[in-house]
Nucleic acid binder design. Structure first.
Length: 294
DNA sequence: AAAGGACTCAACCGCACTATG
DNA sequence: TCATAGTGCGGTTGAGTCCTT
């Protein structure tokens, strides 16, 4: 079967765009707006593929594109976002105003990625061999934090975040061992559970991690204070309390619930995972938050 | 000054997802 | 339900530029 090409390749210009082509494209979009890329070249009088026009506009001509060197702050944010999101360049770019996914991808491949490669070939600590192969591989930078190198994958539409307090016992032993290892990072938190079952929370985490390919579990390993830079950079919505702990804002339907409300009745939390250890906590808003937060 | 290797980044490519009829 | 158009995304390429010898 196969798909028809997005446009006829014959007679089209390829390669670098000329100033005249840029002007034609910019003028056309300023008048008619974005979209309908397939028909744009013909209507605008450009001998270019629609996809090429879209790319040129989004990555170069669009107003607000920030050109020039990536700042240290931006680089730090890119690293942190990449740690959370993997190679989801468009998502990362969405948190860096004026930067494009292409630019960030190039920057990563030519700067950060290379630096990591150098680090991993030196004496820096190497990741433990994983007996239970996982989509992510870890590289270690010289500050000791780890970066997650993932093969970019899309989340299927039918694999939305489904958070439930129902316990499933269908995970195999390997999964349980792996997940318990994560939870052990927060063993202090687990000891502070007020009512409810730790096992229930662990099982919830196991199901959650299994479904979501570890992306969200990375979030749960961050404590609120560490997450503050995410807040400052609008990665997360929420507020900082007097102790500089981040309380994310959870949106549920048309109502908005702040975790401050949760903390008032349960005491201040020290990590995201605390929320999971309280069986009275309604996970559904968290699911919504997670879906909207990224 | 010249050659050629290294690097950068705009652009291309193919696949995947969504919308629509 | 299926086919197709439209769009978005990440990986890869290659021309131009920079750097080193």
């Amino acid at each position: 079967m196969g798909r028809s090409p997005c446009c006829s390749k014959e007679g089209l210009n390829k390669g670098a765009w000329t100033a005249m082509e840029d002007k034609i494209l910019t003028d056309y979009i300023n008048i008619h707006g974005e979209g309908k890329w397939r028909h744009l070249p013909k209507r605008a009088g450009l001998k270019r593929c629609g996809k090429s026009c879209r790319l040129r506009w989004l990555n170069y001509l669009r107003p607000g594109i920030k050109r020039g060197n990536i700042t240290n702050d931006e680089e730090e944010l890119i690293i942190r976002l990449h740690n959370l999101l993997g190679n989801r360049w468009s998502l990362i770019a969405g948190r860096l105003p004026g930067r494009t996914d292409n630019e960030i991808k190039n920057y990563w491949n030519t700067n950060i990625g290379r630096r990591l490669q150098n680090c991993s070939s030196s004496n820096l600590p190497q990741p433990d061999p994983d007996p239970n192969p996982n989509p992510k591989t870890r590289e270690w930078n010289n500050s000791g934090s780890c970066l997650v190198q993932t093969k970019a994958t899309r989340w299927p539409n039918n694999n939305k975040v489904i958070l439930t307090k129902e316990i499933t016992k269908q995970n195999d032993e390997a999964n349980n061992d792996h997940n318990n290892h994560h939870i052990n990072h927060n063993s202090d938190d687990a000891n502070n559970v007020t009512g409810g079952s730790i096992d229930e929370a662990l099982d919830f985490m196991a199901d959650f991690q299994m479904m979501e390919g570890n992306i969200y579990s990375e979030l749960f390993k961050m404590d609120f204070a560490e997450s503050s830079s995410c807040l400052e950079n609008n990665i997360l919505e929420g507020t900082l309390n007097n102790n500089n702990l981040l309380y994310p804002k959870l949106s549920f339907n048309d109502n908005t619930t702040n975790v401050n409300d949760y903390s008032h009745s349960h005491g201040p939390s020290s990590s995201w995972a605390d929320l999971l250890y309280d069986t009275g906590f309604d996970f559904q808003p968290m699911a919504t938050f997670m879906e909207s937060g990224f």
